[in-house]
Design a protein around this nucleic acid. Sequence first.
DNA 1: CAGTATCCATGGGGATACTG
DNA 2: CAGTATCCCCATGGATACTG
Lengths: 123, 123
Amino acid sequence: MGLAHVNPERPTCPVETTLRAIGGRWKVLILRELFQEVKRFNQLHRALDGITQKMLTQQLREMEADGLVLRTVYPQVPPKVEYSLTELGRSLKPILDAMHDWGEQFFERRHSLPTRSTSAESR
Amino acid sequence: MGLAHVNPERPTCPVETTLRAIGGRWKVLILRELFQEVKRFNQLHRALDGITQKMLTQQLREMEADGLVLRTVYPQVPPKVEYSLTELGRSLKPILDAMHDWGEQFFERRHSLPTRSTSAESR
DNA sequence: CAGTATCCATGGGGATACTG
DNA sequence: CAGTATCCCCATGGATACTG
């Protein structure tokens, strides 16, 4: 198994390997959702504000092909499909954590600056 | 200062904040280069195989606007411009490290699998 | 050297309709 | 519910040429 969808160029450096796995437009956010809990398709669709069904499907398929995400279909009507993280997917946690920490720190920095009042900025 | 170029939507979650800062097509790789050492424009251009001048300039400008990268111009002929990381830029190191580690681990996994011989898979 | 400026192709992504 | 299938637009990014 390995980054099936991505371009088959030379392995290059480890950072690029990672980028090929989670560099997609929505993948990190999908991971964030799935780290919270196993989720169904529409659950993800609602959680990822702005994503289209097409993109969600596409990104999920790629992550599945790369072994990051497990897709479980319950043969019933109406259909029920659950997405969860594989062990490999869960091994991305340190990256997500680091991104979370940095974003939080960045946010705090801004709040420690002189508060630029949300003045008459209409619209 | 703060993610000047990115879309001005609501702050949302920390992970998204980070994505807005380094989610660009080439930014992580630029960071990787600049963590090695201060570099000049053409040095970066050569190091980032596949990137175009336009993209390199654009991504650097965005990272500069976001306070991640410092651009130093030496007023001389021919021009000399150096790019380095700001303190904020260097604070991204844990993320880069995590990505490096994961990519490396991934690579090792593949090598520890039964070697699927590069058999008669023509093309 | 370190960029702009232009033109152009690709595909990301929206909208809509349909299905097992 | 969880998709697939089309059609289509436009922003992103590539290639190329030019410049202080």
